[in-house]
Write a protein that binds this DNA or RNA. Structure first.
Lengths: 178, 178
DNA sequence: ATCGCTGCAAACGGTTTGCAGGACA
DNA sequence: TGTCCTGCAAACCGTTTGCAGCGAT
């Protein structure tokens, strides 16, 4: 009935393709942040941050642990949680919750924020940015007297492939639509 | 640092003001659903559903337990969880997650869906509906090849009162902005 | 009478925390 | 050399589940 809380989200492909330059830039920002806070730049912190910065996916703590293990790094989950908190504080990462029973994280650079489309069948996540969303949000907030700090827009549905029936409908990936 | 997982969300005022007629209508729908599923209409189920239907707020399981206790009803939390699942299946309630560490629930009637503005200072929640949001969502989904099943739009910020400084900024209500 | 429900308490699972030993500056 | 970190395991806490007894149909 209820989608199983698959912390085995690792069944999803975890690739490490994207903009290496971007990752290095983010690493510098992270190191600067640590210096500024007078916190040590440890090997583990660098490894965790780099893994997140190199991925264009939304990673769970288990995903990160798996990714690091494959690189031959042994990092405790407690350290991963603690480092992710630092990255969020430094505004270099964002915490996401797609209702799977655990959190995911994605890197972010500066002012850029994304909204998400999540496939409830295969778990694919598509990020997008749309000025129109910001405008509409501001309009609504103004009308109801709110001062906006952040927002969260998630659209759940079937991605192109799943819509076309490339995968069996019902293949459970732990994503629970609202 | 991290907002404490205050399951003591009951510190928030829980009132029971709104449309009684609507609540009774929803009760009938719930009873119909149970009959249709050949499930017993028990006293506990009616009490839990009624409490949710009579409230215009987003209630946690603890809120509901508290509300029921005040009415002199002793209902186990397991039963509340189980009944809420039924209400969600029957499409008479919606599960919400504002990042507090626990779920909230609000009743819903038929096709009506709401988006939310959440005050990160006092916890106030304002529901709203905007056709423009649906339009924009459809446009984005179409462009990215998705078939929409549901969505979630939450705007976090300061409500009119908190913006005006009526409450001390920083008063922690357990709502964690993204 | 027969299911299915209910309450209790134990189990579960993601996240947090305490602590002894180790690493950065 | 002192401070902060790390890993482990235990604690935490919202939620789920197993089970014996009760209630709805």
């Amino acid at each position: 009935m209820a989608a199983s809380k698959t912390s085995e989200s690792s069944s999803r492909v975890i690739s490490t393709k994207p903009p290496i330059g971007c990752a290095l830039l983010l690493m510098d920002l992270f190191r600067s942040y640590l210096h500024q806070q007078r916190l040590p730049v440890t090997h583990q912190r660098e490894a965790i941050a780099m893994s997140l910065f190199e991925s264009e996916q939304q990673l769970s703590v288990d995903d990160l642990a798996e990714l690091l293990r494959r690189r031959g790094e042994h990092v405790g989950k407690a350290t991963i949680y603690r480092t992710l908190s630092l990255l969020v504080e430094a505004d270099l990462a964002r915490e996401l919750d797609f209702g799977e029973g655990f959190k995911r994280y994605e890197h972010q650079a500066g002012e850029a924020r994304y909204d998400h489309l999540i496939c409830t069948n295969c778990g694919r996540v598509e990020r997008f940015t749309r000025p129109a969303v910001d405008d509409l949000q501001d309009e609504i907030a103004a009308e109801l007297g709110f001062f906006v700090q952040s927002r969260r827009l998630e659209i759940y549905g079937l991605c192109g492939r799943c819509k076309a029936g490339e995968r069996e409908i019902g293949e459970d990936v732990g994503v629970r639509p609202k």
